[in-house]
Amino acid sequence: MFAFLGVIAVQNADEGFKADAEEAFKTYSGVVYKHAYIRTGNTADADDILSDVFVRLVKNIKKIKNEVHLKAWLIRTTINCSNTYYKRSKRINQVRLTEVDAVTTPTENVVLPAVLSLPIHQKTVVYMHYFEGYSVDEIATLCGVAKGTVKSRLARARETLKTILEGVDLDV
């Protein structure tokens, strides 16, 4: 992962490129939000993660070398933020909410709930492959796992989706 970011940064360092967090937000808020939503499964958490990610971006803005690096950085940071958010929020636990209204997907959706029901690694891979259009190689470097792992996650996700979405025309 680090190597990937580093390689992009060095190879394609755009002369005079200066990332701006506000501009980045306008362009990529949707990408981050969707990714966070896929990983957490509800909009309330995605709200928080969106804000976390861009606060981090403000602090690291000088390290962003070019547009590709910016997007990769945002995707990776969204993964990190959703992990820590999920883990740490459970542990700190100083003030607990008693109940939370389920912010669920609109009911007319068919595919999205099925994707959301997948394990977290598979969801991410499905999102990155089908929505963002990343190749297996790119996903592997972004997630910091081997190519084979991405492939197997993708294959398992497809298998599950096929069983869940039986009856719906699927060309996964």
């Binding site: 509800n42 928080d48 804000s51 981090r56 636990n93 003030v95 607990r96």
Partner: peptide, 15 residues
């Protein structure tokens, strides 16, 4: 960020 979300933390723990 953690300090900000500290209050919202246990949306996860909850039904």
């Amino acid at each position: 960020a953690l300090a900000l979300v500290i209050v919202s933390v246990t949306a996860f723990n909850l039904p």
